[in-house]
Computed example of a mutant assay.
Amino acid sequence: MTQDSPTLALPRMRQEPAPEHITVPAPRRGRIPALDGLRLLAALMVVAYHYLARGEGWSASGQAMFPTAFPFAAYGWLGVELFFLISGFVICMSCWGRSVGDFFTSRVTRLYPAYWFAVLATTAVLLLIPGGQKPLPWPDVLTNLTMLQEPLGVRMVDGVYWTLFAELRFYLLFALVAW
């Protein structure tokens, strides 16, 4: 540069002293589409198992009615195992960077409201539609709302909820590991 050429002066940035404690919220993790696809696959496997392999809801056996689909549907029970595998992965992800209290609160608020709705809706349907299965007595329904009916020896409002108590136990176990 020559002396005659203009110089470009950049403004000086004023430096602020850094605060002692900076709290940066953890980035919110999005859903993983592949896991959603695997969840769908697992759900379809369980449905196929119950309706095609076990023949629930049909007068004849599933093997006789669906000879082509039966060999695949017979392994649909593995869908439950796939659900548990996915849940284990998602539970680990949901605990990452959180305190044990935050982790447990997030799991309880995710699980219980939908579960309460399902238990009460099932009970209401059983009350309102005559001729089918009788609803459980109210003390048993209230026990079901705690999700502790299995260890307390109380009948389930709906048998398909058995997996939720298994998941709840895993949450407790994982909270201990994270702690």
Rank of each mutant, 00 (worst) to 15 (best):
V119D: 09
P25Q: 05
D102R: 13
F70T: 05
A48E: 01
A118S: 14
T2D: 11
A175M: 00
L168D: 07
E167C: 06
G97E: 13
H21V: 15
S99D: 10
M147N: 15
V80S: 07
R155W: 04
L41T: 12
E56K: 07
S61M: 06
L38T: 00
L164V: 09
M13C: 03
A60N: 09
V157K: 01
L168M: 14
R39V: 07
R98V: 14
L136A: 06
G55I: 05
G159Y: 05
F170E: 00
F104T: 11
I86L: 12
E16D: 14
H50C: 13
L38I: 02
A166T: 12
G62Y: 09
Q3C: 00
L145Q: 13
V46N: 04
F84A: 02
Y49L: 05
L120Y: 07
P67T: 03
T109W: 11
W179T: 13
F66S: 03
A42W: 03
A69M: 13
A121G: 04
V177S: 03
A34V: 15
Q63Y: 03
W96F: 08
L40M: 14
P25C: 09
S59Q: 12
G55A: 06
L148K: 06
T68S: 10
A60S: 11
T7R: 10
T7N: 00
V157H: 03
R54Q: 15
A64F: 09
T123S: 13
A53Q: 04
M1G: 15
G30F: 01
I129H: 15
W116P: 04
A178I: 04
V24K: 02
T105S: 10
G131S: 06
P135G: 10
A42Q: 02
P137H: 08
E81H: 11
M147W: 05
S94Q: 02
V119K: 01
C95G: 11
S94H: 02
T2P: 02
R98N: 14
R110V: 03
L10H: 10
V125C: 15
R107N: 08
A121W: 08
L85S: 10
L176D: 00
L111M: 14
T123L: 04
E16G: 08
F165M: 01
R54H: 07
A121P: 05
P27R: 04
R169M: 11
V160P: 10
